[in-house]
Design a protein around this nucleic acid. Structure first.
Lengths: 240, 240
DNA sequence: CGCATTGCGAGAGCAGTGCTCTCGCTTGAT
DNA sequence: ATCAAGCGAGAGCACTGCTCTCGCAATGCG
Protein backbone atom coordinates (compact mmCIF):
# COMPACT_ATOMS: atom_id res chain seq x y z
CA UNK A 1 0.00 0.00 0.00
CA UNK A 2 1.41 3.32 -0.95
CA UNK A 3 -1.01 5.21 1.24
CA UNK A 4 0.03 5.57 4.87
CA UNK A 5 -2.65 4.14 7.21
CA UNK A 6 -1.84 6.69 9.91
CA UNK A 7 -1.29 10.41 9.92
CA UNK A 8 2.45 10.38 9.38
CA UNK A 9 3.41 8.61 6.22
CA UNK A 10 4.74 5.16 7.02
CA UNK A 11 4.76 3.26 10.24
CA UNK A 12 8.50 3.81 10.14
CA UNK A 13 8.16 7.54 10.56
CA UNK A 14 5.65 6.96 13.30
CA UNK A 15 8.06 4.80 15.24
CA UNK A 16 10.76 7.36 14.73
CA UNK A 17 8.57 10.11 16.14
CA UNK A 18 7.78 7.98 19.15
CA UNK A 19 11.40 7.20 19.91
CA UNK A 20 12.31 10.86 19.43
CA UNK A 21 9.64 11.83 21.91
CA UNK A 22 10.78 9.18 24.37
CA UNK A 23 14.33 10.49 24.17
CA UNK A 24 13.19 14.04 24.79
CA UNK A 25 11.01 12.92 27.68
CA UNK A 26 13.83 11.07 29.38
CA UNK A 27 16.20 13.96 28.69
CA UNK A 28 13.70 16.34 30.24
CA UNK A 29 13.53 14.10 33.28
CA UNK A 30 17.27 14.23 33.71
CA UNK A 31 17.25 17.96 33.04
CA UNK A 32 14.73 18.51 35.79
CA UNK A 33 16.62 16.23 38.14
CA UNK A 34 20.19 17.36 37.66
CA UNK A 35 20.38 20.37 35.39
CA UNK A 36 21.56 20.91 31.85
CA UNK A 37 25.26 20.28 32.35
CA UNK A 38 24.68 16.86 33.85
CA UNK A 39 22.41 15.78 31.06
CA UNK A 40 24.18 12.79 29.59
CA UNK A 41 23.39 11.14 26.29
CA UNK A 42 24.69 7.84 27.58
CA UNK A 43 22.50 8.02 30.67
CA UNK A 44 19.46 8.78 28.53
CA UNK A 45 20.25 5.84 26.27
CA UNK A 46 20.87 3.59 29.28
CA UNK A 47 17.53 4.51 30.79
CA UNK A 48 15.80 3.80 27.51
CA UNK A 49 17.57 0.45 27.20
CA UNK A 50 19.34 1.28 23.99
CA UNK A 51 22.94 1.71 22.96
CA UNK A 52 24.28 5.23 23.25
CA UNK A 53 25.30 5.19 19.62
CA UNK A 54 21.72 4.52 18.55
CA UNK A 55 20.72 7.84 19.99
CA UNK A 56 22.72 9.64 17.35
CA UNK A 57 20.25 8.42 14.76
CA UNK A 58 17.79 10.86 16.29
CA UNK A 59 19.93 13.76 17.47
CA UNK A 60 23.24 14.39 15.71
CA UNK A 61 24.78 15.81 18.87
CA UNK A 62 24.12 16.65 22.46
CA UNK A 63 23.66 20.29 21.50
CA UNK A 64 20.93 19.35 19.06
CA UNK A 65 19.09 17.54 21.82
CA UNK A 66 19.44 20.62 23.99
CA UNK A 67 18.17 22.82 21.19
CA UNK A 68 15.08 20.65 20.87
CA UNK A 69 14.52 20.92 24.62
CA UNK A 70 14.98 24.67 24.45
CA UNK A 71 12.34 25.06 21.78
CA UNK A 72 9.97 22.85 23.73
CA UNK A 73 10.62 24.90 26.85
CA UNK A 74 9.90 28.18 25.09
CA UNK A 75 6.69 26.73 23.75
CA UNK A 76 5.68 25.30 27.09
CA UNK A 77 6.23 28.65 28.75
CA UNK A 78 4.46 30.41 25.90
CA UNK A 79 1.46 28.12 26.16
CA UNK A 80 1.23 28.64 29.90
CA UNK A 81 1.28 32.38 29.45
CA UNK A 82 -1.24 32.30 26.63
CA UNK A 83 -3.58 30.09 28.59
CA UNK A 84 -3.38 32.36 31.60
CA UNK A 85 -4.10 35.35 29.44
CA UNK A 86 -6.99 33.67 27.69
CA UNK A 87 -8.53 32.86 31.06
CA UNK A 88 -8.87 36.55 31.88
CA UNK A 89 -9.31 37.81 28.33
CA UNK A 90 -12.39 39.79 29.30
CA UNK A 91 -10.67 41.63 32.13
CA UNK A 92 -8.83 44.89 31.78
CA UNK A 93 -5.34 45.13 30.27
CA UNK A 94 -3.69 45.48 33.69
CA UNK A 95 -5.27 42.22 34.79
CA UNK A 96 -4.17 40.47 31.63
CA UNK A 97 -0.65 41.86 32.03
CA UNK A 98 -0.46 40.54 35.57
CA UNK A 99 -1.82 37.18 34.51
CA UNK A 100 0.89 36.76 31.90
CA UNK A 101 3.68 37.82 34.25
CA UNK A 102 2.50 35.56 37.02
CA UNK A 103 2.11 32.66 34.62
CA UNK A 104 5.70 33.16 33.52
CA UNK A 105 6.88 33.19 37.11
CA UNK A 106 4.82 30.13 37.99
CA UNK A 107 6.18 28.24 35.01
CA UNK A 108 9.71 29.18 35.97
CA UNK A 109 9.24 27.99 39.53
CA UNK A 110 7.73 24.75 38.29
CA UNK A 111 10.47 24.12 35.71
CA UNK A 112 13.57 25.78 37.13
CA UNK A 113 16.11 23.90 35.06
CA UNK A 114 14.20 24.43 31.86
CA UNK A 115 13.93 28.09 32.71
CA UNK A 116 17.66 28.20 33.32
CA UNK A 117 18.12 26.59 29.95
CA UNK A 118 16.33 29.35 28.09
CA UNK A 119 16.85 32.46 30.24
CA UNK A 120 19.95 31.61 32.21
CA UNK A 121 23.38 31.69 30.72
CA UNK A 122 23.21 30.08 27.33
CA UNK A 123 24.73 26.64 27.61
CA UNK A 124 28.52 26.31 27.29
CA UNK A 125 29.88 28.08 24.29
CA UNK A 126 26.71 27.22 22.47
CA UNK A 127 24.57 29.88 20.84
CA UNK A 128 20.93 29.22 20.12
CA UNK A 129 20.15 28.72 16.43
CA UNK A 130 17.60 30.81 14.57
CA UNK A 131 15.06 28.00 14.91
CA UNK A 132 14.31 29.00 18.47
CA UNK A 133 13.27 32.55 17.65
CA UNK A 134 9.54 32.10 16.97
CA UNK A 135 9.05 30.03 20.13
CA UNK A 136 11.08 32.48 22.16
CA UNK A 137 8.97 35.40 21.04
CA UNK A 138 5.61 34.14 22.26
CA UNK A 139 5.51 35.77 25.68
CA UNK A 140 6.86 39.03 24.30
CA UNK A 141 4.21 39.10 21.61
CA UNK A 142 1.53 38.50 24.22
CA UNK A 143 2.69 41.50 26.22
CA UNK A 144 2.72 43.63 23.09
CA UNK A 145 -0.84 42.60 22.29
CA UNK A 146 -2.04 43.53 25.73
CA UNK A 147 -0.46 46.94 25.64
CA UNK A 148 -1.74 47.48 22.13
CA UNK A 149 -5.28 46.77 23.23
CA UNK A 150 -4.91 49.12 26.17
CA UNK A 151 -3.64 51.94 23.99
CA UNK A 152 -6.25 51.56 21.27
CA UNK A 153 -7.29 55.14 20.76
CA UNK A 154 -6.57 56.01 24.35
CA UNK A 155 -3.66 58.42 24.28
CA UNK A 156 -1.84 57.72 27.52
CA UNK A 157 0.58 60.21 29.00
CA UNK A 158 3.97 59.37 27.52
CA UNK A 159 7.23 59.89 29.37
CA UNK A 160 9.68 61.94 27.32
CA UNK A 161 12.13 60.18 25.00
CA UNK A 162 15.77 61.36 24.99
CA UNK A 163 16.99 62.60 21.62
CA UNK A 164 19.78 60.03 21.51
CA UNK A 165 17.25 57.21 21.58
CA UNK A 166 14.75 58.67 19.12
CA UNK A 167 16.00 56.89 16.00
CA UNK A 168 16.42 53.51 17.66
CA UNK A 169 13.05 53.79 19.38
CA UNK A 170 11.38 54.43 16.04
CA UNK A 171 13.18 51.50 14.45
CA UNK A 172 12.06 49.22 17.26
CA UNK A 173 8.52 50.53 16.98
CA UNK A 174 8.39 49.85 13.26
CA UNK A 175 9.56 46.28 13.87
CA UNK A 176 7.46 45.40 16.86
CA UNK A 177 4.32 47.48 17.05
CA UNK A 178 3.98 50.24 14.46
CA UNK A 179 0.66 51.30 15.93
CA UNK A 180 2.14 52.14 19.32
CA UNK A 181 4.04 55.30 20.25
CA UNK A 182 7.83 54.81 20.47
CA UNK A 183 7.84 55.91 24.10
CA UNK A 184 5.61 52.99 24.99
CA UNK A 185 7.51 50.47 22.89
CA UNK A 186 10.81 51.22 24.60
CA UNK A 187 9.17 51.01 27.99
CA UNK A 188 7.57 47.75 26.96
CA UNK A 189 10.80 46.13 25.84
CA UNK A 190 12.51 47.28 29.02
CA UNK A 191 9.67 45.90 31.13
CA UNK A 192 9.95 42.62 29.28
CA UNK A 193 13.61 42.30 30.20
CA UNK A 194 13.00 43.49 33.74
CA UNK A 195 10.32 40.88 34.25
CA UNK A 196 12.89 38.18 33.66
CA UNK A 197 15.30 39.93 35.99
CA UNK A 198 12.74 39.58 38.76
CA UNK A 199 12.04 35.94 37.97
CA UNK A 200 15.71 35.06 37.57
CA UNK A 201 16.75 36.63 40.85
CA UNK A 202 14.11 34.69 42.70
CA UNK A 203 14.89 31.44 40.93
CA UNK A 204 18.65 31.61 41.10
CA UNK A 205 18.82 32.45 44.77
CA UNK A 206 19.72 36.13 44.70
CA UNK A 207 16.65 36.88 46.77
CA UNK A 208 17.63 34.39 49.48
CA UNK A 209 17.68 36.14 52.84
CA UNK A 210 16.58 39.33 51.08
CA UNK A 211 13.06 38.78 49.86
CA UNK A 212 11.25 35.99 51.66
CA UNK A 213 7.60 36.48 50.79
CA UNK A 214 8.14 36.60 47.08
CA UNK A 215 4.64 36.44 45.68
CA UNK A 216 3.31 39.81 46.86
CA UNK A 217 6.67 41.36 46.12
CA UNK A 218 6.52 40.09 42.57
CA UNK A 219 2.93 41.25 42.20
CA UNK A 220 3.83 44.78 43.23
CA UNK A 221 6.86 44.92 40.95
CA UNK A 222 4.78 43.67 38.04
CA UNK A 223 2.08 46.21 38.75
CA UNK A 224 4.69 48.94 38.62
CA UNK A 225 5.98 47.57 35.34
CA UNK A 226 2.44 47.70 34.02
CA UNK A 227 2.18 51.26 35.15
CA UNK A 228 5.39 52.05 33.27
CA UNK A 229 3.87 50.92 29.97
CA UNK A 230 0.72 52.91 30.47
CA UNK A 231 -1.59 50.33 32.01
CA UNK A 232 -3.58 51.48 34.99
CA UNK A 233 -4.90 49.25 37.71
CA UNK A 234 -8.62 49.88 38.18
CA UNK A 235 -8.72 48.68 41.77
CA UNK A 236 -5.72 47.59 43.83
CA UNK A 237 -7.84 46.02 46.54
CA UNK A 238 -7.71 42.42 47.73
CA UNK A 239 -8.75 40.06 44.97
CA UNK A 240 -9.60 36.91 46.93
CA UNK B 1 65.08 31.80 61.78
CA UNK B 2 61.61 31.72 63.19
CA UNK B 3 60.70 35.09 61.72
CA UNK B 4 59.39 35.00 58.19
CA UNK B 5 61.52 37.15 55.87
CA UNK B 6 58.61 38.16 53.68
CA UNK B 7 55.12 39.40 54.33
CA UNK B 8 53.30 36.08 54.46
CA UNK B 9 54.73 33.77 57.05
CA UNK B 10 57.04 31.32 55.39
CA UNK B 11 58.33 31.28 51.86
CA UNK B 12 56.29 28.14 51.47
CA UNK B 13 53.03 29.96 51.94
CA UNK B 14 54.22 32.60 49.54
CA UNK B 15 54.87 30.04 46.83
CA UNK B 16 51.51 28.48 47.50
CA UNK B 17 49.76 31.80 47.07
CA UNK B 18 51.56 32.37 43.80
CA UNK B 19 50.63 28.99 42.38
CA UNK B 20 47.05 29.47 43.54
CA UNK B 21 46.92 32.80 41.75
CA UNK B 22 48.46 31.30 38.61
CA UNK B 23 45.83 28.58 38.59
CA UNK B 24 43.04 31.10 38.97
CA UNK B 25 44.52 33.28 36.25
CA UNK B 26 44.73 30.43 33.78
CA UNK B 27 41.28 29.26 34.77
CA UNK B 28 39.95 32.75 34.18
CA UNK B 29 41.58 32.75 30.77
CA UNK B 30 39.83 29.52 29.83
CA UNK B 31 36.62 30.82 31.32
CA UNK B 32 36.77 33.91 29.17
CA UNK B 33 37.68 31.88 26.10
CA UNK B 34 35.23 29.01 26.31
CA UNK B 35 32.80 29.46 29.16
CA UNK B 36 32.33 27.80 32.50
CA UNK B 37 31.26 24.37 31.34
CA UNK B 38 34.35 23.92 29.18
CA UNK B 39 36.68 24.91 31.97
CA UNK B 40 38.83 21.82 32.43
CA UNK B 41 41.13 21.17 35.37
CA UNK B 42 43.34 19.04 33.19
CA UNK B 43 43.64 21.77 30.58
CA UNK B 44 44.57 24.30 33.25
CA UNK B 45 47.21 21.96 34.64
CA UNK B 46 48.49 21.21 31.15
CA UNK B 47 48.85 24.90 30.37
CA UNK B 48 50.69 25.43 33.62
CA UNK B 49 53.00 22.49 32.92
CA UNK B 50 51.97 20.50 35.91
CA UNK B 51 50.24 17.21 36.50
CA UNK B 52 46.47 17.42 36.85
CA UNK B 53 46.62 15.69 40.19
CA UNK B 54 48.90 18.40 41.60
CA UNK B 55 46.14 20.90 41.10
CA UNK B 56 44.08 19.20 43.75
CA UNK B 57 46.60 20.37 46.35
CA UNK B 58 45.20 23.85 45.75
CA UNK B 59 41.55 23.30 44.98
CA UNK B 60 39.85 20.21 46.36
CA UNK B 61 37.48 20.06 43.40
CA UNK B 62 36.46 21.78 40.23
CA UNK B 63 33.52 23.35 42.04
CA UNK B 64 35.88 24.90 44.57
CA UNK B 65 37.86 26.48 41.76
CA UNK B 66 34.64 27.82 40.31
CA UNK B 67 33.61 29.18 43.70
CA UNK B 68 36.89 31.05 43.96
CA UNK B 69 36.34 32.48 40.49
CA UNK B 70 32.80 33.47 41.42
CA UNK B 71 33.95 35.39 44.49
CA UNK B 72 36.65 37.09 42.44
CA UNK B 73 34.10 38.01 39.81
CA UNK B 74 31.71 39.50 42.34
CA UNK B 75 34.56 41.52 43.79
CA UNK B 76 35.79 42.64 40.39
CA UNK B 77 32.30 43.80 39.48
CA UNK B 78 31.91 45.41 42.87
CA UNK B 79 35.18 47.29 42.55
CA UNK B 80 34.25 48.54 39.09
CA UNK B 81 30.95 49.82 40.36
CA UNK B 82 32.49 51.42 43.44
CA UNK B 83 35.18 53.11 41.40
CA UNK B 84 32.62 54.47 38.97
CA UNK B 85 30.55 55.76 41.84
CA UNK B 86 33.52 57.32 43.56
CA UNK B 87 34.42 59.15 40.38
CA UNK B 88 31.13 61.06 40.49
CA UNK B 89 30.71 61.12 44.25
CA UNK B 90 30.10 64.84 44.24
CA UNK B 91 27.32 64.67 41.68
CA UNK B 92 23.66 64.19 42.49
CA UNK B 93 22.22 60.82 43.46
CA UNK B 94 20.71 60.26 40.03
CA UNK B 95 24.11 60.68 38.45
CA UNK B 96 25.69 58.30 40.92
CA UNK B 97 22.92 55.76 40.33
CA UNK B 98 23.48 55.90 36.60
CA UNK B 99 27.23 55.59 37.05
CA UNK B 100 26.84 52.40 39.06
CA UNK B 101 24.38 50.85 36.65
CA UNK B 102 26.48 51.68 33.63
CA UNK B 103 29.59 50.35 35.33
CA UNK B 104 27.80 47.08 35.99
CA UNK B 105 26.74 46.86 32.36
CA UNK B 106 30.23 47.72 31.11
CA UNK B 107 31.79 45.12 33.36
CA UNK B 108 29.31 42.52 32.13
CA UNK B 109 30.04 43.30 28.50
CA UNK B 110 33.77 43.10 29.18
CA UNK B 111 33.57 39.84 31.11
CA UNK B 112 30.56 38.04 29.68
CA UNK B 113 31.46 34.56 30.87
CA UNK B 114 32.27 35.74 34.36
CA UNK B 115 28.98 37.58 34.41
CA UNK B 116 27.23 34.42 33.30
CA UNK B 117 28.96 32.62 36.13
CA UNK B 118 27.51 34.86 38.78
CA UNK B 119 24.20 36.07 37.34
CA UNK B 120 23.38 33.42 34.79
CA UNK B 121 22.09 30.03 35.75
CA UNK B 122 24.13 28.76 38.65
CA UNK B 123 26.51 26.18 37.30
CA UNK B 124 25.31 22.57 37.01
CA UNK B 125 23.67 21.32 40.12
CA UNK B 126 26.00 23.45 42.11
CA UNK B 127 24.67 25.99 44.60
CA UNK B 128 26.84 28.88 45.74
CA UNK B 129 28.17 28.53 49.29
CA UNK B 130 27.64 31.18 51.92
CA UNK B 131 31.16 32.48 51.34
CA UNK B 132 30.07 34.34 48.25
CA UNK B 133 27.47 36.46 50.01
CA UNK B 134 29.55 39.47 51.11
CA UNK B 135 31.15 39.83 47.68
CA UNK B 136 27.80 39.40 45.97
CA UNK B 137 26.23 42.17 48.02
CA UNK B 138 28.60 44.97 47.05
CA UNK B 139 26.69 46.47 44.15
CA UNK B 140 23.42 46.19 46.01
CA UNK B 141 24.86 47.99 49.03
CA UNK B 142 26.13 50.74 46.76
CA UNK B 143 22.68 51.31 45.34
CA UNK B 144 21.22 51.39 48.84
CA UNK B 145 23.76 54.00 49.90
CA UNK B 146 22.93 56.22 46.98
CA UNK B 147 19.22 56.10 47.62
CA UNK B 148 19.79 56.63 51.32
CA UNK B 149 21.76 59.80 50.62
CA UNK B 150 19.07 61.03 48.28
CA UNK B 151 16.35 60.49 50.84
CA UNK B 152 18.19 62.01 53.76
CA UNK B 153 15.53 64.20 55.23
CA UNK B 154 13.88 64.73 51.89
CA UNK B 155 10.52 63.01 52.06
CA UNK B 156 9.87 61.89 48.50
CA UNK B 157 6.40 61.01 47.30
CA UNK B 158 5.96 57.31 48.02
CA UNK B 159 3.87 54.98 45.87
CA UNK B 160 1.32 53.11 47.95
CA UNK B 161 2.18 49.71 49.40
CA UNK B 162 -0.41 46.92 49.14
CA UNK B 163 -1.52 45.55 52.49
CA UNK B 164 -0.39 42.02 51.61
CA UNK B 165 3.18 43.23 51.26
CA UNK B 166 3.29 45.48 54.32
CA UNK B 167 4.84 42.97 56.75
CA UNK B 168 7.43 41.66 54.31
CA UNK B 169 8.34 45.19 53.24
CA UNK B 170 8.98 46.16 56.82
CA UNK B 171 11.08 43.07 57.40
CA UNK B 172 13.17 43.84 54.34
CA UNK B 173 13.52 47.43 55.45
CA UNK B 174 14.75 46.44 58.90
CA UNK B 175 17.34 44.15 57.32
CA UNK B 176 18.57 46.39 54.55
CA UNK B 177 18.03 50.05 55.31
CA UNK B 178 16.07 50.83 58.48
CA UNK B 179 16.30 54.54 57.78
CA UNK B 180 14.44 54.30 54.49
CA UNK B 181 10.68 54.03 54.04
CA UNK B 182 9.47 50.50 53.16
CA UNK B 183 7.94 51.76 49.93
CA UNK B 184 11.36 52.81 48.74
CA UNK B 185 13.13 49.67 49.89
CA UNK B 186 10.81 47.39 47.93
CA UNK B 187 11.19 49.55 44.87
CA UNK B 188 14.94 49.49 45.34
CA UNK B 189 15.18 45.72 45.56
CA UNK B 190 12.97 45.36 42.52
CA UNK B 191 15.08 47.87 40.61
CA UNK B 192 18.18 45.94 41.59
CA UNK B 193 16.78 42.73 40.10
CA UNK B 194 15.45 44.53 37.04
CA UNK B 195 18.85 46.05 36.37
CA UNK B 196 20.26 42.58 35.93
CA UNK B 197 17.36 41.63 33.73
CA UNK B 198 18.33 44.42 31.36
CA UNK B 199 22.00 43.46 31.39
CA UNK B 200 21.30 39.77 31.05
CA UNK B 201 18.98 40.16 28.10
CA UNK B 202 21.56 42.20 26.26
CA UNK B 203 24.40 39.85 27.11
CA UNK B 204 22.62 36.59 26.44
CA UNK B 205 21.27 37.60 23.07
CA UNK B 206 17.60 38.17 23.86
CA UNK B 207 17.90 41.69 22.45
CA UNK B 208 19.36 40.47 19.16
CA UNK B 209 17.27 41.87 16.31
CA UNK B 210 15.12 43.69 18.87
CA UNK B 211 17.28 46.35 20.45
CA UNK B 212 20.26 47.31 18.34
CA UNK B 213 21.48 50.56 19.83
CA UNK B 214 21.72 49.27 23.36
CA UNK B 215 23.51 52.03 25.20
CA UNK B 216 20.90 54.78 25.02
CA UNK B 217 18.20 52.21 25.57
CA UNK B 218 19.93 51.04 28.73
CA UNK B 219 20.45 54.62 29.85
CA UNK B 220 16.77 55.40 29.56
CA UNK B 221 15.70 52.24 31.33
CA UNK B 222 18.11 52.94 34.16
CA UNK B 223 16.89 56.51 34.46
CA UNK B 224 13.36 55.18 34.81
CA UNK B 225 14.52 52.75 37.47
CA UNK B 226 16.10 55.67 39.31
CA UNK B 227 12.85 57.53 39.06
CA UNK B 228 11.07 54.56 40.58
CA UNK B 229 13.20 54.71 43.72
CA UNK B 230 12.67 58.42 44.16
CA UNK B 231 15.75 59.81 42.41
CA UNK B 232 15.10 62.73 40.12
CA UNK B 233 17.24 63.66 37.19
CA UNK B 234 18.21 67.32 37.37
CA UNK B 235 18.87 67.77 33.67
CA UNK B 236 18.34 65.17 30.97
CA UNK B 237 20.36 67.06 28.34
CA UNK B 238 23.19 65.65 26.25
CA UNK B 239 26.22 64.92 28.38
CA UNK B 240 28.98 64.79 25.78
C1' DC C 1 6.18 -11.78 -5.00
C1' DG C 2 11.30 -10.91 -4.76
C1' DC C 3 14.90 -7.82 -4.27
C1' DA C 4 17.69 -3.80 -3.50
C1' DT C 5 17.68 0.09 -0.56
C1' DT C 6 17.38 2.31 3.33
C1' DG C 7 16.92 3.01 8.32
C1' DC C 8 18.24 1.44 12.55
C1' DG C 9 20.49 -0.86 16.80
C1' DA C 10 24.71 -2.67 18.85
C1' DG C 11 29.45 -2.96 19.83
C1' DA C 12 34.10 -1.48 19.90
C1' DG C 13 37.00 2.20 20.20
C1' DC C 14 39.11 7.13 20.64
C1' DA C 15 40.02 11.16 23.12
C1' DG C 16 38.84 13.60 26.81
C1' DT C 17 37.06 14.54 31.70
C1' DG C 18 36.97 14.78 37.30
C1' DC C 19 38.91 12.59 40.91
C1' DT C 20 41.73 9.19 44.00
C1' DC C 21 45.68 6.93 45.63
C1' DT C 22 50.24 5.95 46.16
C1' DC C 23 54.92 6.93 45.63
C1' DG C 24 59.01 9.62 46.21
C1' DC C 25 61.32 14.20 46.53
C1' DT C 26 62.02 18.71 48.58
C1' DT C 27 61.43 21.92 51.86
C1' DG C 28 60.64 23.83 56.50
C1' DA C 29 60.64 23.67 61.40
C1' DT C 30 62.77 21.59 65.46
C1' DA D 1 70.93 16.57 61.53
C1' DT D 2 66.23 14.65 61.84
C1' DC D 3 61.55 14.33 61.06
C1' DA D 4 57.27 15.64 59.44
C1' DA D 5 54.68 18.10 56.36
C1' DG D 6 53.80 19.82 51.77
C1' DC D 7 53.98 18.94 47.18
C1' DG D 8 54.45 17.00 42.22
C1' DA D 9 54.01 13.04 39.25
C1' DG D 10 52.10 8.92 37.56
C1' DA D 11 48.82 5.32 37.15
C1' DG D 12 44.28 4.20 37.25
C1' DC D 13 38.89 4.24 37.69
C1' DA D 14 34.58 5.51 36.00
C1' DC D 15 32.50 8.45 33.17
C1' DT D 16 31.56 11.54 29.03
C1' DG D 17 30.57 12.85 23.66
C1' DC D 18 31.25 11.07 19.41
C1' DT D 19 32.66 7.92 15.27
C1' DC D 20 32.78 3.87 12.56
C1' DT D 21 31.65 -0.45 11.20
C1' DC D 22 28.80 -4.36 11.16
C1' DG D 23 24.51 -6.99 10.60
C1' DC D 24 19.55 -7.21 10.96
C1' DA D 25 14.97 -5.78 9.65
C1' DA D 26 11.54 -3.22 7.55
C1' DT D 27 10.26 -0.49 3.19
C1' DG D 28 9.19 0.61 -1.16
C1' DC D 29 9.98 -0.54 -6.05
C1' DG D 30 9.71 -3.35 -10.15
Amino acid sequence: MSNPPDGTRGARARARAEVTAAIKDEARRQLAAEGAAKLSLRAVARELGMASSALYRYFPSRDDLLTALIIDAYNSLGESAEAAEAAVAEAGPAHRWTAVCEAARAWALAHPHEYALIYGSPVPGYSAPQTTVPAAARVGLLLIDIVRDAHRGLGVAKPPLPAELRAEAERMTADLAPDLPPEVVTALVAAWAQLYGLIGFELFGQFNRVVEDREPFFRLAVARLAHGVGLVYPQQGRTD
